[in-house]
Computed example of a mutant assay.
Amino acid sequence: MIKQTAFALWLCIACPLALAGDPPLRLSTTTSTDNSGLLAWLLPLFEAKTGARVQVLAVGSGKALELAKNGDVDVTLVHARAAEDRFVAEGHGVNRRDVMYNDFVLVCPPSDKAGIKGGADIVAALRKLAASEVRFVSRGDNSGTDQMEQSYWNMAGVRPPAPRYVSAGLGMAQVLAMAAELQACTLTDRATWATVRDKAALAIVVQGDPRMFNPYGIIAVNPARHPGINERAARQLIDWITSSEGQARIAAFRPHGQQLFFPSALPAR
């Protein structure tokens, strides 16, 4: 009995549990990780292992990085690589790590009046779309998806005129519902599309272009800029989600039998 008690006490001391009274870990993240159900799949295991409590703020990647820049969160998980690199270069974040990836897809009404179905060139598809009478609904919220969409239109050198181009200022799930209602096209991450495709009268018309690659990264807020952040828990989450266990958990997330995110973490340097 004494040996068992001593062993239990050793476990309690050795495990990296949160300290009593520790504040919650505030995580800003893109809507795709939340809407897809990935966070509900990942975070309970992380919380059970560490004792941390995670508060999730699911917004577009641009807003998620802005919350981190202001010190309103402790860590951010987003998919806007150029913006992430600027965030770190400007000293707002530290310890950025690759986490996972998936891809973007272009979805349109099944009638495909723009005649672009089956293509694998997103820029050529958008040029055809702009020349057609089909409407396009944009996120319009500076999210990672919105930033990628704008880069495609810039490469295309053209976009539909108003009112055929609708800037919604909404999250991805809401934009997909809006596009279905308006019989319009939109760009979406594959994970969110997989969660709503049975409810939206839309179909994938373009996929597979290497330019539609969609990587996700996690970044801790720089404690030198914001000394009051929960640096300890932020480091724990980054270490866990990029560990072999966290990466395996991401790979095992397969709602409806389809893998939506692919782990991509590299060893810490």
Rank of each mutant, 00 (worst) to 15 (best):
D146V: 06
A248D: 08
L39V: 00
D141L: 08
G171S: 11
G208S: 04
C108S: 14
P160E: 12
P24Y: 06
T145P: 13
A173S: 14
Q183D: 11
A120C: 00
F262H: 10
T188D: 10
A252S: 11
L42Y: 04
N222P: 12
V99T: 06
A124W: 07
D22G: 13
E231R: 15
A48L: 05
V88D: 10
L187F: 10
R97K: 13
W153T: 01
A89D: 11
K49H: 13
D141F: 05
A252R: 03
L106Y: 04
R225Q: 08
L42C: 01
M178G: 00
A120K: 09
S243D: 08
P227Y: 06
A124P: 09
L202I: 00
Q259Y: 06
A125K: 14
W153C: 02
T188C: 02
R127M: 11
E231L: 14
V105H: 05
K63V: 04
N142T: 04
L77C: 04
D85C: 00
M155T: 08
P263Q: 05
Q147N: 10
A265L: 09
Y165H: 12
R211P: 00
R135Q: 11
K63T: 10
S132K: 10
A89F: 06
R164G: 01
Q259E: 05
G140Y: 02
